[in-house]
Amino acid sequence: MEANYVQHIQESAQWVGDRIDRRPVEIGLILGSGLGDIASQMEKPVILPYSEIPHFPVSTVEGHAGQFVIGLLEGKSVIGMQGRFHYYEGYSMKKVVFPIYVMKLLGVSSLVVTNAAGGMNRSFQAGDLMLIRDHLNLTGDNPLIGVNHPELGLRFPDMSEAYDRKLLALAKRMAEAIGKERGSSVRVQEGVYAGISGPNYLPPAELTMLAGLGADAVGMSTVGEVIAARHAGLKVLGISCITDMAVGKELKPLTHEQVVAAANRTKPAFIELLRRFIREVEVNT
Rank of each mutant, 00 (worst) to 15 (best):
A13E: 00
A13Q: 03
A13F: 00
R19T: 08
I20S: 06
D21I: 10
E26Q: 11
E26T: 02
E26Y: 01
I27V: 11
I27A: 05
I30P: 06
I30S: 10
S33N: 14
G34P: 11
L35W: 11
G36L: 10
G36T: 08
S40Q: 12
Q41L: 09
Q41F: 02
P45C: 02
I47F: 07
L48G: 03
P49V: 08
S51C: 09
E52Q: 14
I53P: 01
H55F: 15
H55D: 00
P57Y: 02
V58S: 12
S59T: 01
S59W: 02
T60C: 09
E62F: 12
G66A: 08
Q67A: 06
Q67W: 00
G71V: 03
L72H: 06
L73Q: 00
K76G: 05
S77F: 02
I79S: 00
M81D: 05
Q82K: 07
R84S: 07
F85V: 05
F85W: 03
Y87R: 05
Y87G: 02
E89Y: 13
E89M: 13
E89Q: 11
G90L: 09
G90D: 04
Y91K: 01
Y91D: 07
S92P: 04
M93L: 12
K94R: 15
K94G: 11
V96G: 05
F98G: 05
Y101F: 14
M103R: 06
L106G: 07
G107T: 08
G107Y: 08
V108H: 08
S110C: 12
S110I: 12
L111I: 15
V112I: 15
V112P: 10
V113G: 15
V113I: 15
N115G: 15
N115D: 15
A116V: 15
G118F: 15
M120R: 12
M120Q: 13
M120K: 12
S123L: 11
F124Y: 15
Q125D: 14
G127F: 11
